[in-house]
Write a protein that binds this DNA or RNA. Structure first.
Lengths: 152, 152
DNA sequence: TATTTTTGCATCGTGAACGATATAAATACA
DNA sequence: TGTATTTATATCGTTCACGATGCAAAAATA
């Protein structure tokens, strides 16, 4: 008995898992010089869009839990990219704000998306397929993220 | 200055990264009862296809390095799923073979792929888009994996 | 055959992910 | 108002991922 459905090549999740790993690693040449990791880059993207956010908002944005985000932010605070201050209206909150160093990194990072596109085009021929997948990925993400929206 | 290209929602890799995370976590309800993790499930898929493989072959199959796979296999040996014996023809190699327990798990796991499909269909409406992405993912994986094939 | 290079595996350290759990503050409710 | 519940964050432990490095065996080469 062979169990076709158990063959690795028939596993869609394995493709997703591998493609994600490899894509993240494709960022390394551009993130290493900035001294940040990919998840840290994601945090910066969020803060560059809107500075001064509580931990939970950043976590929601990245679809991660605070037990992942808190240590991540602590490491980034340690390396001088951001600050975590007590919230005033809600003292439970920790407001995360960029330092000068964190803000300044945006200038150095602004070309990363195009660099990565170029890198992917160079290695795979085109970036079209990747863009084509976006709606399907979004649908998958929306379905699998157990957001309580819809339960008033 | 807003830098459209630095907006999180415009980051294709973030989608990929998130979708992969969420999809792996969708396996939990089915893997937890078997006492294995998703990467361990992948190792088992490889060994169920072909038992008795050296570490490097498993690593190649999963597109991971031995420094990831070795500890993974050590944990699986510890939990009684497989054995790692010295290779005879090449004594550097460690031949990984399933134990009875590891072999038996296949019966319990054989419905996981359909369970997951059903789960994804339930949550996202369909699994078609996911299947549609396969060729694009494969192309991405092939491009980004720096296989030295082609350099004789 | 002797030496160099490559290969296969392992170890170490760091940074995620994430389940489980804890704590204090805010909110809801009796 | 007092109590219960929820929320925001943090800590801990385990497992991955992966860069760097080490080591011994095999293969290639001089």
């Amino acid at each position: 008995m062979v169990y076709e459905q158990l063959k690795l090549n028939n596993q869609l999740c394995f493709r997703l898992y591998t493609a994600a790993r490899l894509t993240v690693s494709a960022y390394h040449p551009y993130l290493d010089p900035l001294g940040i990791t990919y998840p840290q880059y994601l945090v910066l993207l969020v803060l560059w869009e809107q500075d001064r956010q509580p931990v939970c908002d950043i976590a929601k944005r990245l679809m991660l839990d605070t037990n992942t985000v808190t240590p991540l932010l602590q490491r980034m605070e340690k390396s001088g990219l951001l600050m975590r201050t007590k919230g005033k209206t809600d003292t439970r909150q920790r407001i995360v704000s960029l330092t000068e160093k964190g803000t300044a990194l945006r200038e150095q990072a602004k070309h990363i998306p195009e660099c990565l596109s170029a890198s992917i085009i160079e290695k795979t021929g085109s970036v079209e397929e990747l863009a084509t997948m976006a709606p399907a990925l979004d649908k998958l993400i929306e379905g699998l993220s157990e957001r309580q929206i819809g339960f008033p």
